[in-house]
Design a protein around this nucleic acid. Sequence first.
DNA 1: GTTATAATTGAACAAACGTTCAACGCACAA
DNA 2: TTGTGCGTTGAACGTTTGTTCAATTATAAC
Lengths: 196, 196
Amino acid sequence: MARTAAFERDQVLTEAMKLFWSRGYNRTSMRDLTQATRLNPGSLYAAFRNKQGMFLESVDLYTRALRRETEATLGGEGNAAARIRRFFDNLLDGSAHDAENKGCLLINTLIEAPADEPELRRRAGEALKYVEGRFAEVLDEGQGDGSIRTVTSPERQARLLMTGIFGLRVYARMPEGREHAVEIVDTLLQGVIQAG
Amino acid sequence: MARTAAFERDQVLTEAMKLFWSRGYNRTSMRDLTQATRLNPGSLYAAFRNKQGMFLESVDLYTRALRRETEATLGGEGNAAARIRRFFDNLLDGSAHDAENKGCLLINTLIEAPADEPELRRRAGEALKYVEGRFAEVLDEGQGDGSIRTVTSPERQARLLMTGIFGLRVYARMPEGREHAVEIVDTLLQGVIQAG
DNA sequence: GTTATAATTGAACAAACGTTCAACGCACAA
DNA sequence: TTGTGCGTTGAACGTTTGTTCAATTATAAC
């Protein structure tokens, strides 16, 4: 019936996502996106409607990757404390290898997205809420198996850990901030993981 | 000798700062700034060199206010724990009255400022480092008077509290995030303030 | 009042922005 | 082989961006 698309949608979105991630939404121009994807404006607009459409799908792509990573660390072997430890070790590892210091796309979006574009915030927030929910589940399990402190509810602990992650990503942007990342995580987890 | 300026510099900067604060650097245009300040482009450029100059001075203005607030809460009456509590109560109060949910200009800048403009990050980071330093002093005092836990060094505790503040400002951007602000602060301070 | 100096004005600039669209090209169904 | 439908092309659009500057106005010093 018709001509077939000459590009891989996810491949294009990956390039777009990398740009949005390192430069933010506002500082990423359509010109940048056409160059990075090697697609002409018309093709991009046909496939993604407009710049915001590209961004939303980029965020979705990022979110899927985040969920995979979350399952890979919070799921699997070990007791609850060990798995949470694994999640944070993975976070620290990623941050240490982030030469550009891009941080987390969702958190950046939460801060950068304008108040009059609530859809962006909503999506980013929702994706992060998922991580919080998984934290709460694992913490609850940990309060059962004795690896997690029981002075505070799993939900409150989950919110504290999320706050810790958010704070870490901001702290990492300060001069020499990343040098303290490991230590901050240790202090944070001390308050949640059962000593001994 | 010459004509005198017809505007109050700090008054103009206050308007500029409010704009940068609520809309961010990139989404605030020179046109917005001329309208808000009722000054023509030429006057603004004569007084502040360019847009970045206006922003830097706006950040300075904000920083001065932050320092005053920090002294007003961390200084003054009460033991160390009470003063830190006062700082966070003030933070929560300000956040609750922030109808636009603007958050903190310095933290927003740390996230929004591009990697190729390190001066912005440097200044914002420095201003926040000052607060961290004051935290460390008060915490050290508190470890002496028994109001602050001694399991962790004051410097580490200070970094944890800063991370908590940063995290709170991100958490506040999530849907319904602000509803948990008070509770998150409580959980955070539990780990630092001596129980009893 | 005159003059020197600086502040103010606002139109105008080039560049960059997001977006559109008529023309063209390719692949599939018939 | 041909026709149809959709993907592709890239020049061009109208705005908006940050910034400049010659002309004008106001003030302080004399």
